[in-house]
Amino acid sequence: MSYIKIDKLWKRYGDTVVLEDLNKTVERGEFITIVGASGCGKTTFLKMLLGTESPTGGAILLDGIPLVAEPSEERGIVFQRYSVFPHMTALENVMLSLEFEQSPLLARLFGGARKKARQTAKDMLEAVGLEQALHKYPHELSGGMQQRLAIAQSLIKQPRILLLDEPFGALDPGIRKDMHELVLKLWRELNLTVFMITHDIQEGFYLGTRLWVFDKERIDPHAPEAYGAKITYDLPVGQTDDALLQRIDQSLNQTEQKKETLHHGQ
């Protein structure tokens, strides 16, 4: 049995079809990057993985069991922004999930348990390179450091799936490169299963083991909402040439352009 099975997955909002009939299987330890034109359902798909949206039809199965329709510990998430808690220091941010787990009523740990949780959190922060910033608040950290913190915060729970929603979209190119190294290192060391949305197709080719392209195969000019997006490419990363990359880029641009003209026509 496969680790994650996406089974005849549909998503509609009223008459608008967002995603139509997705069927995929994902094995444990895969790193899937998702690219696509804006409005092609990437984020909707991620939200269904996360549990904040539920499928209109079909299901996403984890070890054969459909995912619960609310966020849970099985799934870790890093958003582009607002991923960390502004009122806690880096260390408190990372300790938080341990406190949730061990102290249902007060959500705070004391004495020996607190010491142990601190140490675990410290180790995690060291793994993402934040050992210098344990007692800093998020507003004292740069954008890249905040995202490191968000990753550490998620990984301490050892989630079965890690979801990254354009996590490096707001960062400078140089810092983005460091973050790529970090994510790859953690992915290898902790044997994570990762889904990552990105705008940057180069990033997609560099990072994952598999690249999914979300795109609309058909657009009806009279009813642009009638057809949803599908996964038009499912490529193993590392075996692609530049020509293919350009072709994908072009087809995505075409979808964007078609949409634009439709909008202007209206």
């Binding site: 996360l50 904040t52 609310e70 966020p71 849970s72 510990e73 799934r75 870790g76 998430i77 958003f79 991923s83 960390v84 808690f85 938080l96 999930s97 949730f100 787990e101 959500a107 968000a150 915060q153 998620s154 729970k157 989630p159």
Partner: peptide, 8 residues
């Protein structure tokens, strides 16, 4: 959402 994924 983040807090929920942390098990809260």
């Amino acid at each position: 959402i983040k807090a929920q994924t942390l098990g809260a």
